[in-house]
Amino acid sequence: MSPESLDDVRTRAHVEKAVFALRPDYRALVIAVAGLMPGPGDAASEAALRAAEGTAYGLVAGTPVEDVPQVASWREAYRAFGAKPQRTRNSLEALLRRAADGLPRVNRLTDCYNAVSVKHRIPIGGEDLSRYVGAPRLIRATGEESFDTVAQGATTVEHPEPGEVVWADDAGVTCRRWNWRQARRTALTEETTEALFILDALDPVTDDDLHAAGEELLVLLRGRGPQLAVARRLLRAADEPEAALPV
C-alpha cells in the first residue's frame, strides 16, 4: 500500500455524529501502517505480553475489574446503546480478566496491540487493510449490516442490533459493539503486512494518554518493520479533520 493510500484511509476515517451524541468524550486514534513484518509471536511480543500481565495483576489485585475507571467508563457506554456489559465485555475488560491466567497468544501483531491495550488501559483493535473495502467509520447500525464471524465452530453471518455502535467499511461490520468482537474477514494474521489500528478512548483517558499508547504501539511495530509507512489521525467530536501527525 502506498503512502498516498494510507493517507486516504486516514483522511476518510469517520465517526458518525450519532456516536458523539451518545458519548461526547469519545476519541479514536486511527493508525494506518504498511511495511509490517508479520509472523507468529516472537521474543519481543512475548516480553511485551509478560510486562502487560504484570501491569494487569497489580491493577486488579485489590480492585474488581469492573471498578477500574477505564473499564467502568466503557461499561456505561455499552449500557447507553442497549448492550449488557456483563454479557458482552469490551475488549479491555476481557483482556484484564484473562491476564491473571495469561493473556492470549495469537500472532505477532495482535500480541503487540493487546499488550499495549492492557498497559495503557485503552481498547485497541487491529484490522488487515488488504481486506478492507473503503474507509473505516464508526456508526450506529441500522441492523441490516452484515458481520461475518464464527459461531459454534462454523462460519456464519450475523447482523448487529439497530442502534448498536459498530465499526464498518463498505463491505460490512468490522467490529461489533464498539470494541467487543472483530470480524473474521479483516482479522490480522501471520501474513498481514498492512494494518489499521484503532485506539478507543473515553474519559478519564486523556488525549496525551491516547497518543502515548499509539507511540508505544509504533515502537513495537517498527521492531518488526523498520521501514514502516504510517498515517494517523485523532478523531474527536470538537475537531475538524486534523493535519497528519509527524511519523
Rank of each mutant, 00 (worst) to 15 (best):
D203L: 00
Y26I: 03
D200H: 12
V118Y: 08
R12M: 11
G58H: 10
T155A: 05
L96T: 05
A212I: 07
D111Q: 10
V33D: 01
L59F: 05
E4G: 08
L217E: 01
A231C: 13
L109P: 02
L138I: 11
T88D: 11
L188Y: 08
V71Q: 02
P123Y: 07
P3C: 07
R233L: 12
G134V: 13
G41K: 06
R79W: 11
P38Y: 14
E127K: 04
E145Y: 03
D239Y: 06
W180M: 13
A61L: 12
N114L: 13
D203N: 00
D111S: 09
P226F: 00
A168D: 04
P136Q: 10
R131W: 05
D208H: 11
V173G: 07
P226S: 00
K84D: 15
E215D: 15
G58F: 09
Y113M: 04
L6S: 08
P246E: 14
T88C: 13
A28I: 09
V150C: 00
Q86Y: 13
V157F: 02
E4M: 12
V116I: 15
R105F: 04
G41Y: 10
V116Y: 01
A183R: 01
K17E: 15
A135T: 12
E191L: 07
G58W: 11
P24R: 00
A100I: 06
E216F: 03
A231H: 07
L36D: 02
R97D: 08
D67I: 07
L138M: 14
E164D: 15
L92E: 09
R98F: 09
E53D: 01
V68T: 07
D169S: 08
P24D: 00
I122R: 07
E164T: 10
L95S: 08
G125H: 00
V19I: 13
L218Q: 03
A229S: 13
Y113F: 11
V68W: 08
A151C: 00
A61Q: 09
T174S: 04
V205F: 02
R185D: 04
L202F: 04
